[in-house]
Design a protein around this nucleic acid. Structure first.
Lengths: 242, 242
DNA sequence: ATTCGATCTTTACGATGTAAAGATAGGGAG
DNA sequence: CTCCCTATCTTTACATCGTAAAGATCGAAT
C-alpha cells in the first residue's frame, strides 16, 4: 500500500505520470537549499553533489543520520538516485571514506611540511592525526569505525594505502632507514604498528569519551593534546614501553 | 495493513485472541532449540535468556545481525518482549556489553594470575586482551565499536570501570607506584593512556584487517601475537617511542 | 477468591535498504 | 531533421527494523 513512500520523499511532489511531456515546468523549484540551484533535469554532476550532501548530513546529524535516503533528500533527488551511482550504502560510505582519507592525508602532509625540524615533524604528524579526527569525528567514524567499507574499490584502496605509506615513511625517516615496499624486518613492522596503534587507539578512545576519566584526574587544565604529547615524549621508565 | 508483521514472528503462530483461556495447550512446543525447553508461559528468566540468545546471535551472525527482533526470535518470544526488559536496543546492547566486559576482565585476571614473574604478567595482560578480542570479535565490537551504549547503566559502568582499574593497577605495579584513585601525575596518565591506546589500537586495527599489509610483509609466518610481543618488548631506537 | 501489577503478545506505524519498472533527456545514426 | 538508444533519474513496491500502545496472561498480595 506504500503508506510512507508516496507521501513526499522530497518537496518535488507528484506530477501524475503521463502528463507534462517536457516543458519548462518540470525544471523549477527543485534542489532544496543547494547554493547552485537551477540545474538541468538530468543533474549532470549528481555523483559529486551526493558526496557533498553526504558530508553535510554527516556533519549535521552524525553517523546515525547518514542514510541513503537522507543524502538523497539533502541533494534534492529521489531516494533511489544514490543507488544508481554507488550501488548500495556500502558503496556510498566507501567513496565518502575515500574523500575523508584524502582530506586526512592532506592535513597530515601540510602539518609535516610546516614543521622545521625532524623532531617537530615527528610530533606534528600524530597531532595532525588526532586534530583531524576531533575536527571531523563523523568522517573519522566512517573511515575507521564502520564495517561497511569496500576496500576493493580503487578510490578507497588508494587513499587508504597512501595514508599507510605516509606513516611508514615517517617511521622510516625517524629510524633513518629506507622502508622497502615489499619486505619489513620485525623491528620495522613493530615500530610502524606501535606508532599506528598508539595514535589510532588514542584517537578512538578519545572520541568515545573513554579518556575522560584519565583527563579529569590529571593536573588542572591538561588537554588531550598535551596528554598525547606526553605519551609520545615522556621517557620510558619501565622495562616495557607499556 | 500489517503485511509482514502478522506473518509469523516466531513458530508459535496464531491463537485467535479470545479462545484458549489458560489450558496446557498454550505451553507446548515453544522455545526454538533452547536446551531447557518446557518453561512456564511467563518465561521466568527471560532477561537472562535474552542475553544468552543475544550472545549466540552475535557469534552466529555478527554485529549486523544483532537486532532486537533477531534476539527475540532466537529466544522464542515475541519481537516486543526484549523491550520490556531492556527499554530499547541501546539497553540490550549495554547489558550485553557489560557481560562482555566481565568475561574480558576475568580472562585478563586469570592470565595474570597464571604468570610467574612480574614481567611475564606485564606481557600476559595485553596478550589476553588481544586474545579475547580475537576469540570474540563481535563482543569486542559491542564493547568498543558501537555508539549505542549507555554508560549510565550501573552494570555497564561498573564492569567498564573494573576494566580500567585493572589496567591502571597493572601500570602502577610496573612503575612500582601506588596509583591513586583521584589524582594522577601527567607521567602516570601518559603511561596509562599509552598502554591502553597501544593495545586497543592494535586490537581494532587487527580486527579490521588493517594490519594485514604489515603482517604479510614480515618474515615468513610472523603471527599477530608475535608482532604484538615485539611492539611491547623491542627497544626504542628513536628519540620518540613512536 | 478477587484484584493488582508484572510479564509477554498483538497490532500498528514510520523509516530504511534495495529491487524492478517506468519516465526523461541527450547524442548519434539514418 | 527525425528517430532511437542509452544513461540517468523517479515511482512503486516490499521485507525488515525499532518503537509505541493496547490487549492478554499469570503470580501473588490482600
Amino acid at each position: 500500500m506504500a503508506k510512507s513512500d508516496t507521501k513526499s520523499e522530497t518537496a518535488r511532489s507528484s506530477r501524475a505520470p503521463g502528463k507534462m511531456t517536457s516543458t519548462a515546468a518540470s525544471r523549477t523549484s527543485r534542489r532544496a537549499t543547494s547554493a547552485k540551484a537551477e540545474a538541468p533535469y538530468h543533474h549532470g554532476a549528481l555523483r559529486e553533489a551526493l558526496l557533498q550532501a553526504a558530508e553535510r548530513v554527516l556533519e549535521r546529524d552524525g553517523l546515525a543520520g547518514l542514510t541513503l535516503r537522507a543524502v538523497a533528500r539533502e541533494a534534492g533527488v529521489s531516494h533511489a538516485a544514490p543507488t544508481h551511482h554507488f550501488g548500495d550504502l556500502t558503496g556510498l560510505l566507501s567513496e565518502l571514506a575515500a574523500v575523508g582519507f584524502r582530506q586526512f592525508n592532506a592535513a597530515m602532509a601540510s602539518a609535516c611540511d610546516a614543521a622545521p625540524t625532524p623532531l617537530a615533524r615527528a610530533l606534528a604528524r600524530p597531532k595532525a592525526y588526532v586534530a583531524y579526527a576531533q575536527a571531523h569525528p563523523g568522517m573519522y567514524g566512517i573511515m575507521f569505525r564502520t564495517e561497511r567499507l569496500d576496500y576493493s574499490r580503487p578510490s578507497l584502496h588508494e587513499a587508504a594505502e597512501a595514508s599507510f605509506a605516509g606513516l611508514a615513511n615517517a617511521i622510516g625517516a625517524m629510524r633513518q632507514e629506507q622502508i622497502s615496499g615489499d619486505a619489513l624486518t620485525l623491528e620495522q613492522g613493530a615500530a610502524i604498528a606501535r606508532a599506528w596503534s598508539m595514535v589510532h587507539g588514542f584517537t578512538t578512545l578519545l572520541l568515545d569519551g573513554r579518556l575522560k576519566d584519565i583527563l579529569e584526574r590529571l593536573p588542572e587544565g591538561t588537554t588531550a593534546e598535551r596528554l598525547l604529547e606526553s605519551m609520545l615524549t615522556a621517557p620510558i621508565t619501565t622495562k616495557l614501553p607499556v
